[in-house]
Design a protein around this nucleic acid. Structure first.
Lengths: 207, 207
DNA sequence: TCCTCTTGTCACTGCTTGGTGACATATGAC
DNA sequence: GTCATATGTCACCAAGCAGTGACAAGAGGA
């Protein structure tokens, strides 16, 4: 009795880079669908239609694959800046709105953000560092020459508003709202963004 | 050959309620230590020093146990309200500070909040509903008779600030900071709370 | 043609998980 | 005392997991 089937057709094409890319995209799909919970070499390999052994061979394991995936994250900023006119608070609000819309449409990024809050791991910390560098770099550019008003701790305020944006986005995606504020429809988000803009207006007044 | 050891001493005392309580406390310890990831009947039973079978018998399963645990959550509000003097923004800031301090010292609640963001489940939704009812009930009492200023969407603003508080607390616990704002020491938090208070002051001005 | 290295496939181990059936024993009613 | 029942204990199962060794087969150089 043979312990081995006579043969399998083997992959039609033999292309390491293409296979790696398939793994990376599969990992993103699995995260978007099942979140960090259902993440594992078995699930990713099944999604990619390839063998999990290759994950170890090409990426050294699951962590390596996730880092490779994190390195591929898009930039999602930039164009919001070019279109920014008006005073500081208006430009800030425009960037906030653009960032919010982008975040709301990116389930993978959402899951990564949620994952970071749940369990700190060195891998996640590295992914976060690479990703958030782009965001931090925007802030000074955004500010331009203007100084924040007296008595306003601009970095702290911006961190607060950004934190709220992250939290509300995640809550909207999972629970549909937070603290009595519904966050399902576009109208809901318009209301929320108006409140953000109001806070910015009052923090960085007339220019 | 016997399939069974002659005998085990059996629990010293037989007390269903005490055992249930041991399970509830063990579940809280496991969550505080390992987060939602390492949660499971095996881990909880081991932590409680009891048999997992009893979890099914007494709580109907893991979900029932978690709900029983959620029902035991403390109130964490109330005394902050009694000590609240001054205008609306000052009272609000006092409640925020009290809530923040309480949240920062409650790893179980932190893990539950993070878990809610990661994977929506009916159980978590029920726990959240029970817990947040208390918070929602505070808001109107806090507001008293005063009306919010024209053009201010008070519920949205409060949701934003509360969301930021949650997010920054979780980020501080896992990553030690967010968006360039350090959130490790008490001084860090004093700075953050000052920024919160500034936002409240500007939103709900002189009274 | 032959030979070697890489890419891909599969079977298998060891471990952990959620969940259950079978059993032992303390407790309290009678 | 007698005995039913609640309480606690343990062994076991099927399923899923991460990780690895052995093998097949395409690709390309000599």
């Amino acid at each position: 009795m043979p312990t081995r089937k006579p043969t399998a057709p083997a992959k039609a094409t033999r292309d390491r880079e293409a296979t790696q890319q398939r793994f990376i995209e599969a990992a993103a799909r699995v995260i978007a669908r099942d979140g960090a919970a259902g993440l594992g070499v078995n699930a990713i390999a099944a999604e990619a239609g390839a063998d999990k052994k290759l994950i170890y061979r090409y990426f050294g394991g699951l962590d390596g694959l996730l880092e490779a995936m994190g390195a591929n994250t898009a930039v999602w900023i930039g164009d919001a800046l070019s279109a920014s006119k008006g005073d500081y608070s208006e430009r800030m609000a425009a960037v906030f709105a653009a960032y919010a819309a982008n975040l709301r449409g990116d389930p993978v990024l959402q899951k990564l953000l949620a994952w970071e809050l749940a369990e700190p791991s060195d891998t996640l910390r590295r992914i976060d560092a690479a990703r958030s560098k782009a965001m931090y770099a925007v802030m000074p550019k955004l500010r331009g020459d203007e100084k924040p008003p007296e008595g306003v701790d601009a970095p702290a305020v911006n961190a607060i508003l950004l934190a709220a944006l992250h939290y509300l986005t995640l809550r909207g995606a999972t629970m549909g709202g937070f603290s009595g504020l519904s966050l399902k429809t576009d109208a809901d988000w318009k209301r929320a963004m108006a409140a953000f803009q109001g806070l910015l207006k009052r923090t960085y007044p007339q220019d």
